[in-house]
Amino acid sequence: MALLQLEKERLVWRARQLTGPDHRRQSSFYPTLDAHLQGGWPQTGLVELACGPAGIGELRLLFPLLAQAQSRLQVWINPPAELNGQALAQHGIDLSQTLLIRCQNPQQALWSAEQSLNSGCCSHLILWAPGLTAPQAKRLQVSAKGNQALMFWLHPQAEPSTGALPISARLSLAPLATGLRLQIHKYQGQWPQSSCQVDMHELWPSLAIPTHLPTHHGPAPSSTIAALPFKPR
């Protein structure tokens, strides 16, 4: 009976049974990613995203998800630059439910994250932090799970942290011409997948490199850049 219960909640799973989407996942709104993650992001827990340098599309990966769930607060802690309200609003994020926290030291950032999760009024939390120790990750994971919240931890390393952190998922991101390549290192409830490509071309056509061009050798013709002369005022 207890085993059945565990199986139902996918805390214990059989390798051969893993087909079809898990109903306890929330869609990422990227079909290829949903297919690879058996339904999308976990409902609750802590997800590590190793992004490398900022600006490769790590937030665009999350925007469709954040735009959907807005009944509770979405907390952003220590983003690497200012969060542009115009961009967030464009992507459908409710700014009245968005809270931005800036902390001087990492301990305070972790304290804020834990308080926000434990308050029960936060549905998504995005934390930029250089590193987490196993006890810290465990505390955040437990807080997120216990309060029906999903937390993303973003850091600028290209590879996820070494050592087995007790968290729901660990992914690393790399830029592609039309989106991102996701390496899934750990995902609770399924085998680690090799990698998957997330196509952002449909949602952000103007940010993808046109397909007829080579990836890293853009045209940048100096003529177009300098085409518009500035008139002196």
Binding site: A81, E82, N84, Q86
Partner: peptide
Amino acid sequence: LRPSLLFT
């Protein structure tokens, strides 16, 4: 279209 992260 505006960037989501902006430098002060």
